[in-house]
Amino acid sequence: MEELKELYQQVILDHNKNPRNFGELPTCNRHAEGHNPLCGDQIEVFILVDEDTGKIEDVRFKGAGCAISKASASIMTTLLKGKTIEEARKLFEQFHKVVTSDPSSNTDVINLGKLAVFCGVREFPARVKCASLAWHTMLNALDNHTTTKVSTEQL
């Protein structure tokens, strides 16, 4: 089925199998935990921000979850490196739009770049939370300089 292929396209399957930037980042200065109580997904996002330039120097994640949540976290980390905090927030907005917009609406796939892989998620509303967990956790880490916990049920 086409929608399913789109949801689990090769990029996502690959990131699920070989997650990038996986593990802890002891030098981080932003950190948050995310939890999806409905499916038990747990994630931690570690971010190192250069306080002078406001740029994300490094970002890593760890946790357990389904292919969608793991791949989403992995892809997110690859997109964040080198971005400013402001750019990271914009990326979040863009991502959020991709996964929650009406599947029948015309999405400008070309301008989405790497985010386009998440288009398939829209067809499966039950899976939007899986894809979003890492992103909300990232946002929470940026918003708070201390360790915080975010739950998909509070979003």
Binding site: L4, Y8, C39, A67, I68, F124, A126, R127, C130
Partner: peptide, 8 residues
């Protein structure tokens, strides 16, 4: 993961 199984 069971979630992926369920969707498929």
């Amino acid at each position: 993961h069971p979630h992926d199984v369920g969707t498929m």
